[in-house]
Write a protein that binds this DNA or RNA. Structure first.
Length: 781
RNA sequence: GGACGGUUAGCUCAGCUGGUAGAGCGUCUCGUUUACACCGAGAAGGUCAUAGGUUCGAGUCCUAUACCGUCCACCA
């Protein structure tokens, strides 16, 4: 045995081996099932190091639970549904869905995702995920479509779904309604314009606005009720410049006295406050912008202009009329659509909603029923639930997604939904099973599709639908949901909502929230910053084990900064393991443990076995609490310091002098079990070592098919351990002495004086210590 | 403005139910040829963000403050 470990050869080799031998196959008939609701990564984005980071955490748990005797349901899914995929396809093929038309575009999407899928999945395999890749699910698959539509029908039948003309958040770029959760803030530069309005009573007032193009939509003017200098205006009527509509001056506490002139114009709709006022003060509706960012006929001579052009032209006109009194350049934050960074508008459109605002308290209760790790993450969700102000608008005016299974009667306009056994269905190419109640047989199909979250929120159902009912019942609620904290308001929230609406249950028992991966400066990795590191780069250089080692260092919920030095540490561990096993194997040739060998154990063997047992219990405890970092820490400390630096050094001479079956027994036991404990964290090197040194004797196909040692397989030697600690202490004193004298550990020394509390007990170890520390005589003080 | 985290050695972080600070990396010194220099031994390094309070005693509990981060709200 004299070769070095080469991860570039071994890692792909074992990955193929696991796949071929189905080492991680889920056994649905097992007694103990541990089910994981893994996040399906969006196919539109390349896998980045942040994924490797959080998926490693989940994978460590999956592997740990497996070796603790669970059959682990650990699916792998791909989110290739909806807007993100459409945008990807548009980008790859340099087309827009409007150019291609619906049918061709959907076909192109399907074809494209089929093409990318293998490459996409390959990246995830490389980091050593022990998912069942043969059964990878997709959120656009026929099964997912069927389920999404089925549960849509459930909500519909519960009366939870309604369609209504409502002001919704509208993305003019994507030409679709979007959800509250899809908003993002963006700083932009703009002008704050002071515009003069005339009152019917003849007075003049100044109003500041960033959106003069909305003047035709102005429906009222607001001042603060306690603003003494302005509240004399309340009740009066103002005339909107250029467009000349007369609007009332009202009061509302939301007005900020110190902002602009303290007088606000309210338009339908400039922002969410306008909408609030529209409902609260029962204002008229005056829409002047169209869905594609233009002004409509209400804007009179400005109609047909884009918002941007109209803004300029209207400002010009105001200037001519001497009504634009001043302009200030400001930078302010606006709401943009997170997928395309376009400023959103609020437009009344016909949309589908899930009614759930009335359930806020129930949602809060559900949130409390789940076990949050770390605990404080719960307040993120609760905070979000408390702040909900819209029902869930789930219709999207896009093409690539799951169709809403509904039609409208051509005659009486009634909504007709599909029948259960028609699913999955596209209403565009199918008809309802029965006539409308009015007798008509002509229908207009719904063209809207469902929001991606409408499907993602069903991942537990998508995964469990593959098994028969008994099993899916047993595995639900799922054991664990791992995810990062950025999608608590999306995925986690919606999954909880669906689970409550359909089953009055929580979707999973534990929520494991991992942090973010930051770059070395502590900034979030993002394409726009150009600081994204790809896992491939790291794996090529240091190996997947090293990457996993590093990822396992962070505590749950904590962000982790990328640090190349720390990844090197992982590689060092891999090398150290390899060398320790290579060395030990010299002393284990043809050895197979027998019961009687236990009787040959010396105190130093008992000491290390005892240490191992204590460490193992601690390791289990930490792993059970999802404290990967701490589990690894105790294991590292044992392996590196106790086992390698002390034990191996102590037994060296004993092992070299003769085949000592006591030493062999301890060595074999420790090595094999250390390997087991390391295997969830660094699966490749542990497999390599197992196959190289143990497979022949143990016969089991892979290290990953072992169970961890149970309590009865651990050791308990408190007395010998306590005694031998004296010897360790003495050895340390001699090391220190030699280091201070600047001489080699191996250099022979005449006499060393050591101090000890227990003069009696150290006596029996002195010959051993003198031998390994190269000291002729140890004097005890 | 609201909620939640964080602030401990040069760096990254541990420090459970309160009892005079720990690890890894880095630095410095020394040691190699029967596992490993991707190694071993040793050393130096901290008034635990600040100010109060509780206590015999606080990094650890309480209250303020500052700074950093995340989410939410506001953004006329």
């Amino acid at each position: 045995m004299n070769k070095d470990y080469d991860f570039t050869i071994s890692e792909p080799k074992w990955q193929e081996f696991w796949e071929k031998e189905k080492i991680f196959a889920f056994n649905p008939k097992a007694k103990k099932i541990f089910s994981i609701d893994t996040p399906p990564p969006t196919m539109s984005g390349k896998m980045h190091l942040g994924h490797a980071f959080s998926y490693t955490h989940t994978d460590i748990t999956a592997r740990y639970k497996r070796m603790k005797g669970f059959s682990v349901l650990y699916p792998f899914g791909v989110d290739n549904n909806g807007l993100p995929t459409e945008r990807l396809v548009e980008k790859i093929h340099n087309v827009t869905l409007f150019q291609l038309g619906r049918e061709k575009f959907v076909q192109l999407c399907q074809k494209t995702i089929q093409g990318i899928l293998p490459d996409f999945i390959f990246g995830w395999k490389r980091i050593g995920l022990s998912s069942d890749f043969d059964n990878a699910y997709s959120t656009i698959s026929p099964e997912a479509q069927k389920l999404s539509q089925l549960y849509f029908l459930d909500l519909y039948n519960q009366g939870r779904i309604y369609k209504k003309e409502m002001p919704v958040l509208w993305c003019p770029e994507c030409q679709t309604a979007i959800a509250q959760a899809e908003l993002e803030d963006k700083e932009i530069e703009t002008f704050f314009n002071d515009i003069e309005f005339r009152l019917t009573s003849g007075e003049k007032i100044l109003i500041s606005t960033t959106r003069p193009e909305l003047l035709p939509s102005c429906v009222s003017i607001f001042v603060h009720p306690l603003d003494k200098s302005k509240n004399n205006l309340i009740g009066k009527t103002a005339i909107v410049p250029i467009f000349n509509q007369e609007v009332p001056i009202l009061s509302d506490e939301k007005v900020d006295i110190n902002k602009g002139t303290g007088i606000v114009m309210s338009c339908t709709f400039g922002d969410t406050t306008d909408m609030e006022w529209y409902f609260k003060h029962n204002l008229p509706l005056k829409i002047s912008i169209t869905k594609d960012r233009k002004l409509n006929e209400l804007a009179k001579e400005f109609s047909g202009l884009s918002i941007k052009e109209a803004r300029e032209k209207i400002l010009e006109r105001l200037k001519e009329l001497n009504l634009l009194k001043s302009q200030k350049r400001i930078s302010h934050t606006v709401n943009v659509h997170e997928r395309c960074q376009t400023e959103i508008e609020i437009l009344p459109t016909n949309q589908w909603f899930v009614k759930y605002l009335d359930l806020r308290n129930q949602f809060l209760k559900q949130s409390g029923k789940m076990n949050w790790r770390p605990k404080f993450m719960k307040s993120r969700l609760d905070n979000w639930i408390n702040g909900l102000s819209w029902d869930w608008c789930f219709s999207r005016q896009r093409y690539f997604g799951i169709p809403i299974p509904a039609w409208y009667c051509k005659k009486c306009k009634k909504i007709i939904v599909a029948d259960k056994d028609q699913l999955p269905i596209d209403p565009l190419s199918a008809k309802p099973k029965t006539k409308c109640s009015c007798g008509s047989e002509e229908f207009i199909p719904e063209t809207d599709i469902m929001d991606t979250w409408m499907t993602s929120s069903l991942t537990p159902q998508v995964v469990l639908s593959r098994f028969d009912k008994k099993i899916s019942k047993k595995a639900f609620p799922m054991s664990m949901r791992p995810q990062a904290h950025d999608i608590i308001n999306f995925w986690l929230f919606y999954t909880m909502v669906r689970s409550y609406l359909h089953f009055k249950n929580i979707p999973f028992k534990e929520i494991i929230v991992s942090g973010f991966l930051l770059d070395s400066k502590g900034e979030k990795m993002s394409k726009s910053k150009g600081n994204v590191i790809e896992p491939e780069t790291v794996i090529n250089q240091y190996g997947a084990d090293a990457l996993r080692c590093w990822a396992s260092q962070s505590s749950l919920g904590d962000d982790l900064k990328f640090n190349e030095e720390e990844i090197k540490n992982g590689k060092r561990l891999v090398t150290k393991l390899w060398n320790a096993f290579k060395f030990s194997s010299l002393h284990l040739e043809n050895y197979s443990p027998e019961k009687n060998d236990k009787k040959l154990l010396q105190d130093e063997d008992k000491w290390i076995l005892n240490k191992f047992s204590l460490m193992t219990r601690e390791y289990y405890k930490k792993m059970d609490e999802y404290e990967y970092a701490k589990a690894k820490e105790v294991l590292d400390k044992f392996f590196w310091s106790d086992f390698c630096d002390n034990y191996l050094e102590i037994i060296k001479t004993r092992a070299y002098e003769s085949k000592d079956r006591g030493v062999q027994y301890a060595l074999y036991y420790l090595l094999l079990n250390v390997l087991k404990l390391y295997s969830p964290i660094i699966p490749f090197i542990t497999e390599e070592i197992y196959q190289e040194f143990f497979k022949e004797n143990e016969k089991i196909k892979s290290i990953h098919l072992f169970s961890f040692p149970e309590d009865k397989e651990l050791f308990n030697f408190p007395k010998e351990t306590k005694d031998f600690e004296n010897a360790i202490n003495t050895i340390e004193q001699i090391r220190k002495y030699k280091s201070e004298q600047k001489i080699s550990i191996k250099a022979e020394v005449e006499t060393v004086v050591i101090e000890t509390k227990d003069k009696e007990k150290i006596q029996k170890y002195l010959p051993l210590i003198e031998k390994i520390m190269a000291v002729k005589k140890i004097e005890v003080k």
